[in-house]
């Protein structure tokens, strides 16, 4: 489903969002939830969310001896689970996106990145993401295994 943060998000997701606002200690704009919608379309999710770091051409970049990894032509993406896991758990400086994207939005953007910036045409489905999220060994919000 389309996540409209303010009105249409499932109650559980709203509760999580509310909690995140309440316990967040860092400086933040404050105010209330946003009316801003993340799209359901993979290409738009990429443009709205992912390209803030991975850049519009998905080539990443950096400077201080460190870089945000390229998603374009990235052989790690051959395995569909690779992106699912990182979106669920985060990795390095990249945070988890479980509180920002629905499983359907994750599936859409993974499918887009794998097919558009790489040549892996087989789609990743919402069910794939949900199966991974429910899978054994997944610890929410904690990439402890690395």
């Amino acid at each position: 489903m389309r996540r409209i943060w303010r009105y249409a998000a499932p109650a559980a997701a709203l509760a999580v969002l509310g909690m995140a606002v309440a316990v967040k200690a860092q400086d933040a704009p404050g105010g209330g939830p946003s009316n801003v919608q993340v799209s359901d379309e993979g290409k738009l999710v990429y443009e709205q969310i992912c390209q803030a770091c991975h850049m519009a051409d998905a080539k990443g970049g950096g400077g201080a001896g460190a870089a945000i990894p390229a998603l374009a032509n990235n052989p790690n993406l051959a395995k569909p689970e690779f992106m699912i896991e990182i979106l669920q758990k985060g990795r390095g400086g990249m945070p988890w996106f479980t509180d920002m994207l629905t499983p359907a939005q994750m599936a859409a953007v993974i499918t887009y990145v794998r097919s558009h910036f790489n040549s892996y045409p087989d789609p990743v489905t919402e069910a794939d993401v949900k199966r991974f999220a429910a899978g054994a060994g997944h610890k929410p919000d904690c990439n402890c295994a690395q």
Binding site: A52, G61, A64, G93, K139, C144
Partner: peptide, 17 residues
């Protein structure tokens, strides 16, 4: 996120991690 010397803004901890 696009500032080369940090590639992000501030750390985020959860109770779990």
């Amino acid at each position: 996120s696009r500032i080369p010397w940090i590639l992000g803004c501030t750390s985020r901890w959860t109770e779990e991690n």
